[in-house]
Amino acid sequence: MQELLGILEGLHPEVDFNTCTNLVDGKILDSFDIVTIVAEVNATFDVAIPAEELIPENFNSAQALWALIERLDEE
């Protein structure tokens, strides 16, 4: 989780990712950011997030994203 927060803060240092829950709906993350996150996650956790999971619900908060990573890691 800390590593994930590190990735996110690397992209948007001005956002508090611990509390923010509308990263996509609030237009903080755009599609370029999302794709960058996917690449970073792949590099860091060796988890490939498929295109169908690139939906706002999974990216609106750091928690949701972490949950997604854990779920995919299990499969």
């Binding site: 599609s31 794709v35 590099a43 295109a51």
Partner: peptide, 23 residues
């Protein structure tokens, strides 16, 4: 375009591998 073209291309396996390499 984003859902069905941009994302699938950018997060596809070859792209991720390429990204690791170029990184």
């Amino acid at each position: 375009m984003k859902r069905y073209i941009f994302y699938p291309i950018t997060v596809s396996q070859p792209m991720l591998k390429l990204s690791l390499k170029t990184r």
